[in-house]
Nucleic acid binder design. Structure first.
Lengths: 212, 212
DNA sequence: GATGGTAGTGTACGGATGTACAGTCGTCAA
DNA sequence: TTGACGACTGTACATCCGTACACTACCATC
């Protein structure tokens, strides 16, 4: 239920929020009074007491700027989901070695089915380079990759070209494969059958995570 | 170039950031002293002067808690818990009617410290609109938000304007707040003090996840 | 016409707070 | 060996700030 506040108390609350957002600290009693054109601090004290009674602010007694606005977000108490096994974070992917080789694993991520559907066949890679920035995949992002040897046309895949792993959109064509970056600064990579290069689809990208 | 700070001054800066994020207001000189085990306020004064000289904090002279941190350094690493509780996924956020937990929560994500550092204060939101596409945050993405009532200049925040939640970059200015989209098609939102609009910082964005 | 809530004025007290002054101790480069 | 700097102790003071007390006024509604 939205607490029913008087107009004046809405103003007081708005002033507190605004002051905190602008200056990085909540206002003092006298700053609120000055902001609303009230000469006496005691008038504000009454409003603060009312706001506290209604639960929209919290106060630390006798502390300067001891006002905290209670967020619109309610406190949450939720069931704790089952513990899930970790998904390996792989470092460099080298050709000729199984993907899950121990030496490649930099760590694990515990992620639940919401983030990753097919956990057993999923691994995580750190993105290098900005060739997929057109798909909002940036350098340093972590991508979730489901291991599979084939992909559908147009999917974002992790592929091995010779000894190098790369992330691109996948376009199979007669006698060749086109790997297209989403950053127009990068030309498509074309692997022709007669080139004799090693080419392998390691998996398809199912998710992206980025620390901000 | 990150300014080279002494160990002690790093501690002071970290304490200020931590205190501000936790309590909603920066600490007093004596609170910093007490937090670092220093009996004299003057020892802290010297550190604050140095931090100000180096431009990593700003101060409002003679005002209680008149410290503002300026630049965003990598967050300090807090003790990492082993257990992995669920992080709530919230639906729409409306201000006028604070929605009860069970109505509003679409589900939970089990994410470990690798994905989310301060999990107790973190929730997940679904992005609506493409206003932050310049930061590779797209419609439908899930963003991880750490609940805190104040933010630092330039951080990506979730803010409440009147009755609407929005994701923007946050720029506090004298007597107003500027919220800037990273998609140039969207003009900055300016909330002036005299507008009388409701404004509140709900938290800062710490991560992005996208299903591909 | 009594009651209770809202909104305010004016004054005052004591502790919190920023700040200044006077020193101490150790390190490290000139 | 001088001097700059970091880190700190200890004291002191004016002002800021939360809080309390006394009092006024308006306005519902019971």
């Amino acid at each position: 239920m939205p607490p029913r506040l008087t107009k004046r108390r809405e103003q007081v609350l708005a002033f507190i929020r605004d002051h905190a957002a602008r200056t990085g600290a909540p206002p003092t009693v006298r700053e609120i009074a000055a902001g609303l054109g009230i000469p006496s601090p005691n008038a504000v004290v009454g409003h603060l007491a009312a706001l506290q009674r209604m639960g929209v602010i919290e106060r630390s007694p006798r502390r300067a700027r001891g006002i905290r606005t209670v967020s619109a977000l309610p406190p949450l108490s939720l069931p704790i989901p089952e513990v899930v096994p970790g998904i390996p974070i792989l470092g460099r992917i080298a050709a000729g070695r199984p993907i899950y080789a121990d030496e490649n694993v930099e760590g694990t991520i515990a992620a639940d089915p919401f983030l990753v559907r097919d956990r057993a066949e999923t691994f995580v890679l750190r993105v290098q380079g900005d060739s997929m920035s057109g798909d909002a995949i940036l350098p340093g992002d972590y991508i979730f990759v489901r291991r599979q040897p084939v992909a559908e046309r147009g999917q974002i895949v992790v592929a091995l070209i010779d000894d190098e792993a790369t992330v691109k959109r996948y376009f199979p064509e007669p006698r060749r494969v086109r790997l297209v970056a989403s950053n127009p600064a990068y030309a498509p990579i074309v692997i022709r059958q007669e080139d004799g290069r090693r080419f392998e689809v390691l998996g398809v990208v199912t998710g992206v995570f980025r620390r901000v």
